[in-house]
């Protein structure tokens, strides 16, 4: 090589030596801006919340500001019925959302994975609620839940199922189901998209060979499809549980935690305490407890389900 004076042969090494930044440093340079920004805007504030939770820090009562020790946590666990009720409501909310979104999302995904005419259009329409924001969900569903001019009351009265008008979002019997259904409307498409993506990665010939063996649709589902989907189901339910736990925009705008604080989940309680009432210290304590809950849940869930066991 050295003896050949060809331009092509000698150029690459010269080029490489001429580079001011080596291949070892370059990948780090590429990811540095993102890493720095996340550290500054997300990681640092999270550490700071832990510090704030040990402080008295209340905009409406600034004379008491200062180190609080564990008094915020003591109050939270011994003298705050709303805290315990919001834990229960959060649990109910997350469980119902994840279970129904998974079951219905799986059915939708299986249907949309079948071959039929106009599938592209049907898919685009069925999955579109995923792109609708929480505030807009509130708008769309409030219009239908409205006591006097909403669709539901009118439809059910015309069909003879209801006798009088119901205030769906205020009535004790219906408000929880009402917010559950509205959130399901945008949550089911999330599961359908995730599961549809993994359905498409199942090789066709597996079904062909199972058809030769005379397996029916139900057996295919149980023995081929579901095992293939296992990893995505575990991943999607975990992500979704965390998102539903944290979801705030729809409940906040639709019921504002009411009636009688019965839709006040932990994040709503924290938002109201910290942002609306200005009690940063106590709000941070609620945040820290929620965060520890989530981490514990995620760790247990990953351990029990064995997620990522194959390639980790």
């Amino acid at each position: 090589m050295k003896s050949s004076p060809g331009v092509l042969a000698t150029k690459p090494p010269v080029e490489k030596r001429g580079r001011r930044i080596s291949d070892k440093v370059f990948p780090y340079l590429l990811i540095a801006p993102t890493a720095i920004l996340i550290l500054l805007v997300m990681v640092y504030p999270i550490f700071r919340v832990f510090y704030l939770s040990f402080q008295n820090y209340d905009l409406t009562n600034p004379f008491m500001d200062g180190f609080a020790g564990i008094s915020n946590f003591v109050k939270l666990f011994t003298d705050d019925p709303l805290f315990f009720s919001s834990i229960g409501i959060t649990f109910k909310w997350v469980l119902l959302q994840v279970v129904f979104q998974l079951l219905l999302g799986l059915i939708v995904a299986l249907i949309l994975n079948a071959k039929f005419r106009g599938r592209g259009v049907v898919r685009a329409i069925s999955l579109v609620p995923w792109a609708v924001s929480g505030v807009l969900i509130t708008m769309l569903w409030s219009l239908m839940y409205d006591q006097n001019s909403g669709l539901f009351n009118d439809l059910l009265i015309r069909m003879g199922i209801l006798k009088g008008h119901i205030a769906w979002l205020a009535d004790n019997r219906t408000f929880f189901a009402a917010i559950i259904v509205a959130e399901l409307w945008r949550g089911i498409p999330f599961f359908a998209i995730t599961l549809l993506a993994s359905l498409q990665s199942i090789p066709e010939d597996i079904y062909e060979s199972s058809a030769i063996d005379g397996c029916g649709a139900v057996r295919n589902l149980i023995y081929i499809t579901l095992p293939f989907l296992k990893e995505s189901i575990i991943f999607a339910t975990l992500l979704r549980a965390i998102w539903e736990f944290n979801s705030i925009d729809m409940i906040f705008t639709m019921t504002n935690g009411g009636p009688m604080d019965q839709t006040t989940t932990l994040p709503i309680y924290m938002m109201k305490t910290a942002i609306i009432q200005g009690n940063y210290g106590y709000g941070s304590a609620i945040g820290v407890v929620s965060f520890l809950f989530l981490m514990l849940f995620a760790a247990l869930y990953i351990k029990i389900s064995g997620y990522g066991g194959e390639d980790a």
Binding site: A35, I38, L40, V41, M42, Y44, P45, I46, R48, V49, L52, L239, I242, F245, N246, I248, P267, M270, M271, A274, I275, Y280, G283, S284, G287, S290, F291, L294, A298
Partner: peptide, 21 residues
Amino acid sequence: MFLLGTQMMPVILFIIPLFSV
């Protein structure tokens, strides 16, 4: 993993300190 982890952080948790940042 760090990128995936950010997806699990509740925005509402760190909004107060973020305000001062």
